[in-house]
Amino acid sequence: MSQLLLHTKSRIGGKNADVHIYDNRIEWAREAHGIGWNITAITLAVVTVCISLIFMRPSFKTQATAVIPAAKISSIETKKDGPVNTKVTVITSGNTIEFRTSHDKAAALRSTLTGLAI
């Protein structure tokens, strides 16, 4: 049974995500579709949904998820991203994922991920 090493919140692809790091994998899940509460976004969403319902069968996805096996991690990079955030980039054989988190959480995230890559 896998052991949960770290749970944190992050920004992935511009959306908030829950990140779970286990001793053998990284899992994350984020909202795939979200609409702000301004009138322009609501209007565009209504028009888009109406057009989609007319021309296509609707497919309502609520989350995007991914699982990255620890054995696939080839490197981990960090880079300051503004005054309060750091990007922690996980590079695998077939993918690159950027986790954007606060400076204070970035050190723990990198340390945990580095332990997986060894």
Score class of each variant (00 low, 15 high):
Ser2Leu: 09
Gln3Met: 14
Leu4His: 05
Leu5Cys: 07
Leu5Ser: 04
Leu6Gln: 11
Leu6Asp: 11
Leu6Pro: 02
Thr8His: 00
Lys9Asn: 11
Lys9Asp: 12
Lys9Tyr: 06
Ser10Pro: 14
Ser10Ala: 13
Gly13Asn: 12
Gly13Arg: 03
Lys15Ile: 14
Asn16Gly: 09
Asn16Lys: 04
Asn16Cys: 08
Ala17Asn: 10
Asp18Arg: 02
Val19His: 00
His20Ala: 10
Tyr22Thr: 12
Tyr22Asn: 09
Tyr22Leu: 12
Asn24Ser: 10
Arg25His: 10
Trp28Gln: 09
Trp28Val: 11
Ala29Thr: 11
Ala29Met: 11
Glu31His: 00
His33Pro: 10
His33Lys: 13
His33Tyr: 13
Ile35Leu: 06
Ile35Gly: 01
Ile35His: 03
Gly36Gln: 14
Trp37Cys: 10
Trp37Tyr: 08
Ile39Val: 08
Thr40Leu: 11
Thr40Asp: 07
Ala41His: 06
Ala41Pro: 05
Ala41Ile: 09
Ile42Trp: 01
Ile42Gln: 03
Thr43Glu: 12
Thr43Pro: 01
Leu44Asn: 13
Ala45Tyr: 10
Val46Met: 13
Val46Ser: 06
Val47Pro: 11
Val47Asn: 04
Val47Ser: 02
Thr48Phe: 04
Val49Ser: 08
Val49Thr: 15
Cys50Ile: 13
Ile51Pro: 10
Ile51Tyr: 09
Ser52Leu: 13
Ser52Met: 13
Ser52Cys: 13
Leu53His: 04
Phe55Trp: 12
Met56Thr: 12
Arg57Ser: 13
Arg57His: 08
Pro58Lys: 03
Pro58Trp: 03
Pro58Cys: 04
Phe60Glu: 15
Phe60Thr: 11
Phe60Met: 12
Lys61Val: 15
Thr62Ile: 08
Thr62Trp: 01
Thr62Tyr: 02
Gln63Lys: 05
Gln63Ser: 07
Gln63Tyr: 02
Thr65Asp: 15
Thr65Pro: 08
Thr65Ile: 06
Thr65Cys: 03
Val67Leu: 09
Val67Phe: 02
Ile68Met: 12
Ile68Phe: 01
Ala70His: 01
Ala70Trp: 03
Ala70Thr: 07
Ala71Arg: 07
Ala71Ile: 10
Ala71Glu: 11
Lys72Glu: 15
Lys72Leu: 11
Ser74Glu: 13
Ile76Trp: 02
Ile76Ala: 00
Ile76Glu: 05
Ile76Lys: 00
Ile76Asp: 04
Glu77Phe: 00
Lys79Asp: 06
Val84Lys: 04
Val88Tyr: 00
Thr89Val: 14
Val90Tyr: 08
Val90Ser: 08
Val90Arg: 14
Ile91Gln: 08
Ile91Asn: 09
Thr92Glu: 15
Thr92Ala: 12
Ser93Asp: 14
Ser93Cys: 05
Gly94Met: 11
Asn95Phe: 05
Asn95Glu: 14
Thr96Met: 10
Thr96Glu: 14
Ile97Gly: 01
Glu98Arg: 01
Glu98Val: 10
Arg100Leu: 10
His103Glu: 07
Lys105Cys: 01
Ala106Thr: 03
Ala107Ser: 07
Ala108Thr: 13
Leu109Val: 02
Leu109Cys: 02
Leu109Asp: 07
Arg110Cys: 00
Arg110Ala: 03
Arg110Lys: 11
Arg110Thr: 06
Ser111Trp: 01
Thr112Phe: 01
Leu113Ile: 01
Gly115Lys: 03
Leu116Val: 05
Ala117Ser: 04
Ala117Tyr: 00
